[in-house]
Design a protein around this nucleic acid. Structure first.
Length: 590
DNA sequence: GCCGTTTTCGGCCCGACTGTTTTCAGTCG
């Protein structure tokens, strides 16, 4: 059973308990466990194998013993019996927006909907026939709301269409620039997942501190190519021509800190924070902090002051995911996160030099990439063109690589003469990992590179054991392999990454001192943040690279840095934060 | 059912919104 399946099962049990009138904290416990399992980076089954189910946050003795039975026998008798007490037709209805367990149960019961398969269509029929309006607790309005929700559900809007962070960031910047042009803006920030720099973003939320909310809102709504959805005294919502929704919230500067904190989330971070505050007799909300005894609400201008008021140091938004940041802030052990300015080089760039690769070559010349690296004030750059097509004679490939070495050396010398820069370069190569783990570059061709990045570009659907073996083989066959490029191979919104035993891959990477890449290319953002977190904990080194296929792509580095920050990485975890000499020693293993 | 640098028992996040009610239940983030 996979993690999503287990999470779904726990949510069903929770829903059943809710209908059955079970203790509400037991219900919350099941939801929390489901939530936790959904965000886990390892398989629950692996925890079970290791007899460590109770190490999963939110899983205690009760849920663990049922999971144990589930893995041993294929089912938990207790859960089967709980689920058996409610009609199974309610479960599909929970996916319809606005329908929770109670309403779903009432509908299924009253309208006698028995088939889980057809329940949504059946409900739609009943609503159209006007049979819902007369039910107790429902009315005309809820009947039409249900019809709309079913339509939304059918359109697939339920699976929210999230966009990669860099695209959302671009849109947000444009809208924020527009808001600022209107004036009266004291402070402006993104909110929610965008502020936390999550790799995929749903809606874009923006906050403004202002003493003239009316005017800020008015100007916001003059943004071109949009449709106004909603506006009130505290905020407004518009739909852009590209189908993206943007929310603006306004607040006075005196109370801005509390609002910023509240709407930045994450939800679980805020839940933990409020629990902690409650122990101190404080109740947190979006307007400030209430003293439970006196009922007085105090406003906060900044988040720093807000966190300080609950006894914590400031927690960077990227860490607010309930992954231990609150205890760390309490004890003063928050990591000193890597910043964009710490980057000393970009190791994964593709120039337009044609070495007869089967993949894309870059758009810009060697000189143009050197110039861009210089502009970014890097100390060094790595050129990592794709390997030559592997289906040609070995001697020819070696010859291509030899020629390439000469061409790069000459181009670099010429550029240095002209530009009087101290920029250094490494001649690398991005080598395909073949399905069996061998590398798509002959052994002898390695002579003509300083180091290589190995990457998956095919066979992404291998089963776990095979994929793991493939990666391990690739990392251990040649000492010049120094980096595993875009490790999972995922493409946001279009391709799942390869399923591998990352713990195993990381332990091999650690043993051979190989870095896992955080690829900053917008659709990749790979290694994913949750695995970065594991890598940092395991002491595995990382590199952050743009995979630039054009000079302008090198500007995308900050998105890779944001992934690293979400994984709790400091600059000591990142190889290309080292100065030239140290990095050279590391790369060349001397 | 879970959980613990004030607890192994006694707590458990908070408010907005909506529609149905006449004080509240359900859902959502």
């Amino acid at each position: 059973m996979t993690n999503p399946e287990i999470a779904e099962l726990l949510r069903k049990v929770s829903a059943a308990y809710l209908i059955l009138g079970e203790n509400r904290f037991r219900i919350i416990a099941y939801d929390r466990a489901a939530d936790s399992i959904e965000h886990l980076t390892s398989e629950v089954k692996d925890y079970w194998d290791d007899k460590k189910l109770e190490d999963i946050p939110g899983v205690g003795g009760g849920i663990a013993s049922n999971l144990d039975e589930l893995f041993r026998t294929g089912k938990s008798k207790h859960w089967v019996s709980v689920l058996g007490k409610v009609p199974e037709a309610i479960f599909p209805l929970l996916l319809v927006p606005g329908l929770g367990p109670k309403k779903a149960y009432a509908l299924v019961k009253e309208l006698n909907l028995t088939s889980a398969k057809t329940v949504i269509a059946d409900l739609e029929k009943a609503a159209k026939a006007g049979r819902i309006a007369g039910m107790e607790g429902f009315g005309e309005k809820s009947q039409s709301v249900i019809l709309e929700a079913i339509a939304t559900y059918k359109r697939g809007a339920i699976k929210e269409n999230r966009m990669p962070l860099p695209y959302a960031d671009q849109i947000a910047r444009e809208v924020m620039a527009h808001i600022q042009m209107g004036g009266n803006v004291e402070k402006i920030n993104a909110l929610g997942s965008l502020r936390r720099q999550v790799s995929t973003i749903g809606d874009i939320d923006i906050a403004v501190a202002t003493n003239k909310p009316e005017e800020v809102l008015k100007h916001f709504l003059t943004f071109p190519h949009q449709k106004i959805i909603d506006r009130g005294p505290r905020g407004a919502t518009m739909l852009l021509a590209n189908g993206r929704q943007v929310d603006l919230r306004v607040q006075t500067p005196e109370a801005y800190g509390a609002m910023l904190q509240y709407f930045t989330g994450s939800k679980n971070h805020n839940i933990q924070l409020r629990s902690l505050a409650l122990e101190k007799g404080l109740s947190l909300n979006e307007y400030g902090i209430k003293n439970v005894k006196t009922g007085k609400v105090k406003e906060y201008r900044t988040e720093e002051a807000f966190y300080e008021a609950v006894g914590l140091s400031y927690i960077p938004p990227e860490l607010r995911e309930d992954k231990g940041e609150i205890p760390a802030a309490k004890s003063g052990n928050l990591p000193d996160l890597v910043e964009a300015k710490d980057m000393r080089g970009d190791l994964h760039t593709h120039s337009s030099y044609d070495l007869q690769s089967s993949h894309d070559v870059g758009k810009n010349s060697i000189a143009e990439l050197l110039t861009q690296a210089d502009r970014l004030e890097y100390s060094y750059i790595g050129f990592s063109d794709h390997n030559p097509r592997a289906n040609q004679p070995e001697a020819e490939i070696i010859e291509i690589m030899k020629k390439r070495r000469d061409a790069y050396d000459r181009a670099y010398e010429a550029w240095i003469q002209k530009n009087k820069s101290t920029l250094k370069f490494f001649l690398m190569c991005e080598v395909d990992i073949l399905p069996d783990g061998r590398l798509a570059l002959p052994e002898k061709a390695f002579t003509y590179v300083d180091a290589v990045i190995v990457s998956l570009h095919s066979a992404f659907t291998q089963e776990r054991g095979q994929a793991t073996k493939r990666l391990v083989t690739a990392l251990t066959t040649n000492p010049k392999v120094r980096i595993l490029g875009h490790p999972t191979g995922r493409l946001l919104g279009s391709r799942e990454g390869v399923d591998a035993d990352w713990q195993e891959v990381m332990s091999v990477a650690k043993k051979h001192d190989i870095a896992l890449e955080i690829n900053a290319y917008p659709d990749r953002l790979d290694l994913p943040d949750v695995l970065v977190y594991d890598a940092v904990k395991a002491g595995v080194k990382l590199s952050i690279d743009t995979d630039a296929h054009a000079a302008e792509h090198m500007l995308l580095m900050p998105y890779g840095v944001s992934v690293a920050r979400r994984g709790w990485a400091t600059k000591r975890d990142i190889v290309n934060c080292m100065d030239y000499n140290n990095f050279r020693t590391w790369l060349l293993k001397k």
